[in-house]
Design a protein around this nucleic acid. Sequence first.
DNA 1: AAAATTCATTGGAACGTTCCAAGTTCGTCT
DNA 2: AGACGAACTTGGAACGTTCCAATGAATTTT
Lengths: 360, 360
Amino acid sequence: MPARSPARHRGTRPTITDIARAADVSKSTVSLVLQGSPSIKADTASRVREAADALGYVYNRGAADLRRQASNTIGTVINDLTNPFFAELLVGLERSLAEHGYVTLMAHTGEDLATQERVLASMREHQAAGLILCPAFGTPEELLQRILWWRIPVLIVVRPVGDEGFDFAGSDNEAGTYAATKHLAERGHRRIAFLGRVGGGPVYELRRRGFARAMGEHGLAVEDEWLIDIPPTREGGRAGVRAALALRNRPTAAICYNDIVAFGALSELGEQGLRAGIDFSIVGFDGIADGAHSNPPLTTVSVNPERLGASAANLLLTRLRDPESAPLRYLAQPQLIVRQSSGWVEGTRLATPATPAPEH
Amino acid sequence: MPARSPARHRGTRPTITDIARAADVSKSTVSLVLQGSPSIKADTASRVREAADALGYVYNRGAADLRRQASNTIGTVINDLTNPFFAELLVGLERSLAEHGYVTLMAHTGEDLATQERVLASMREHQAAGLILCPAFGTPEELLQRILWWRIPVLIVVRPVGDEGFDFAGSDNEAGTYAATKHLAERGHRRIAFLGRVGGGPVYELRRRGFARAMGEHGLAVEDEWLIDIPPTREGGRAGVRAALALRNRPTAAICYNDIVAFGALSELGEQGLRAGIDFSIVGFDGIADGAHSNPPLTTVSVNPERLGASAANLLLTRLRDPESAPLRYLAQPQLIVRQSSGWVEGTRLATPATPAPEH
DNA sequence: AAAATTCATTGGAACGTTCCAAGTTCGTCT
DNA sequence: AGACGAACTTGGAACGTTCCAATGAATTTT
């Protein structure tokens, strides 16, 4: 390799070629040293490393990725970050990815399908090694097929799309609401409402089913009007409680589709002068951190969102190692956390249970 | 250019060279077409585009970035995503970046300085075009200097580091707590506590100062014990209220360092059987979405986190266009949103004001 | 002492783009 | 008819890595 090369002009970053020149070795040697190859003599290696430091060298991952035809970027698509559930999920995801040397290219869809299309295409152009997708509401299975056709490993989180066939990480929704409903029934509730978007996709369907099953097993009827159709938002929670309280055959408790619905419900109860856990019981779903400090603290079915995120990331990394194996599947077993918002017993005030707190 | 090239083997993605071969033009022409150059004849262009579609071509942004010595990746470092304030900020950031054709490389530090160092270095290797940093607590000015030395434009968000000199987007903390305190004073409160981490950096300092100034202007003394030292968390809020209620000269209201502290405070008041806004008033800071639906809804100083994020992104993009201009600075003017948690008046119950709601 | 083996290093061709300089093909003007 | 320009198109050298095949030197084996 010719020792003569054009001198580096100010402002441009040093490359392995510059290091090579400074350390008087070839660019191949520098590359090997940077990769920690054992076949380079120790003192050559340290000479190279010194030169690199002296020049303020920065590894150019883009160039390496181009040559290696690989990347350590994982595209992560979140549909609703303003829901702390997804924020906590993202924390777990990102942490786990980072721990394994991957980097997170993050995009937010706000439940918009067109945005989702756009960001996925962008991640493809960016040569993401894999994708993690919290699908926006109404995502067609066809999109997932298309992504597979791109030959990019993709993991779906939280909301299943299509029937199996894709890698998926989520929680056992049916078991979750079953436990929640059982809890309320055992505390003496006989008329229990369910607050969520009717026809709101598979997650809603499963949660409703767990509710119905538990009701049935406790010999409790489910009146149609107790299935209250509200958007899965804080406002929805308020509206749901208003609707529930207005019913002729008024429920004494409600299972909420998720924690933010439950927060809305708590808020509305307060506004109506009712005490959650005494006058009316509320149970949420998700187990977001705020639930431990709402007013009153929220009984909820915790899926431990941060841990779910970490598990999801690990699942995708497994897939990256073995692109051809059968679809992977992880279902977190949710855990009922009893706090004050369900501290109600037939006719009497229940001693508020100490938060049992095996939480983080 | 030789028309003969090795045939594409299955599994490898088509490149502009493949398109060139298919459309019987040169690779340069394909490149120009993809860039929408006007100097390519319309029918050539469409022939090329058809070939590209037929082959299922995907633009390789990494390769282009390498050649152009540029990238459209912005590194975004968030210190605490489990605080909805930062989650909403991130939403605004990402949306604005995406609208301008940039992509967000996101990392979470969890307030850990070592993690912060690591992710910043990684973003540098990834050739981020710019950085947006919500600095972890205790970030030294030296780090910022170092980043500038990297010649990567960086914007600091929320927490200033060092004295000016860096691009910054944040809110007027002093004015915010001033307005909040004034509000409480005008409602008749004379003993007001401030719940936050004493010595918790410049943001704390400014918020405390706004509080002190308003107290002074209303002729109210600030007892040392009313400055309650708690971590800026939900738990901190609970502890703060407990501490406040235990004081001999017991305050009747508290300004909280931020909304999640306020949520903790509301929770603790509830636990103690006190009604926020009636028995004790609470004001938060940040204006996160949940505040509109807490129990009771939270009076807060809203900085509109999502909009702040968008503004921050725009500021960085301005900087990218002109790398040499003087430091940029954006201070959001926060807005007091009065809700029920401060609906208290000397001796009487205040008619709960309708949420005035110019919120989003 | 020659051959074989190991060890350390290196040349140079990729990877998929961009973009400059240069080329070709026209139509138009003298 | 020849020259000139405009309108299109193209060759090929970058960008900063990796990694294969090859080289040379030192060491061991025969």
